[in-house]
């Protein structure tokens, strides 16, 4: 475990009017690890994601992303597109957001926008046919091919993304996020709606992303077969507050987590409340 975490979330609080969606949350995402963010429905997991990726501006708190060369990015101060482009945080969405009218390949090429934009001299050189746009364009197709291969979508490359079955769309969204060359990949419920076989495949894919591509993963997931199987580190949220943080086995046996997920016997309520700190 490296000394400097890739992403350090400190005292993150997000209020919507009177509602406190995330309350003083702190956790670390370490480099080369798969970190899972779990919790019952409405616990504020997606809100945390939206804060990290810049879609929400947090009310309080600090989120520091440290790149390998030691550069720091304060995510709470950056607009969403710069978080993806400069801090290198990519994300997927709970309700899949593909470019349905574009082909699978085009989806992956759009993800390489910033690289290609630079290579084409911000369009002007590319339009005139000078500079390295041709080479960059070929390289972008190669990268897309690599991810198509990895997500087993090569056969569907020329089909519209909207034509793919649900499981393929989920994988395509991951491939598209990976085409932005991220350091941290944030997945919002990647296993939702997948059958057990597809869930297993997802595990393999995520492990490979961590090992072969060296990308750290932060995921929200309800499917415990995915969470407990692949994560190195689990953070549990309930009502916007962190109730547990540790290895999968530690979290699994934490009485607070069990109480949050399964509830407790009536006679134990007081004892558990005291323990939880209510």
């Amino acid at each position: 475990m490296s000394t400097q975490p890739l992403l350090k979330v400190e005292h993150l609080t997000m209020r919507f009017g009177g509602l406190v969606a995330v309350n003083d949350l702190s956790f670390d995402v370490h480099k080369g690890e798969i970190t899972a963010l779990i919790g019952p429905n409405g616990a504020g997991k997606t809100t945390v994601f939206n804060c990290i990726t810049g879609f929400y501006k947090p009310t309080e708190g600090m989120m520091t992303l440290t790149q390998a060369d030691g550069r720091h990015y304060l995510l709470e101060r950056m607009p969403d597109f710069r978080i993806a482009a400069e801090a290198k945080v990519a994300r997927t969405f709970q309700n899949i957001r593909l470019f349905t009218g574009m082909t699978v390949l085009e989806n992956l090429l759009v993800a390489q926008h910033n690289v290609l934009m630079k290579a084409s001299g911000y369009t002007i050189m590319g339009l005139l046919g000078i500079g390295g746009y041709k080479a960059a364009s070929a390289a972008s197709v190669e990268k897309a091919k690599y991810w198509l291969e990895k997500t087993r979508l090569t056969d569907r490359a020329d089909d519209p993304a909207g034509d793919l079955p649900y499981g393929d769309q989920r994988r395509l969204e991951i491939a598209r996020a990976m085409c932005t060359d991220p350091l941290l990949l944030c997945l919002d419920e990647p296993a939702a709606g997948l059958n057990p076989r597809e869930s297993l495949e997802l595990n393999t894919l995520l492990r490979s992303i961590r090992q072969d591509d060296g990308v750290s993963v932060l995921l929200i997931e309800h499917d415990m077969s995915v969470v407990m199987e692949i994560s190195d580190h689990v953070v549990v949220l309930d009502y916007g507050t962190k109730i547990s943080d540790g290895t999968p086995s530690h979290v699994q046996n934490d009485p607070k987590v069990i109480a949050a997920y399964l509830g407790v016997e009536d006679e134990e309520v007081e004892a558990v409340e005291a323990e939880v700190g209510l």
Partner: peptide, 22 residues
């Protein structure tokens, strides 16, 4: 070109575009 693809992507889904750094 990338800019043209970005236009069409924008028509398809603006939020996804922003998540890809556009």
């Amino acid at each position: 070109m990338p800019v043209g693809r970005a236009w069409e992507a924008l028509r398809e889904d603006e939020i996804a575009c922003r998540s890809l750094g556009i």
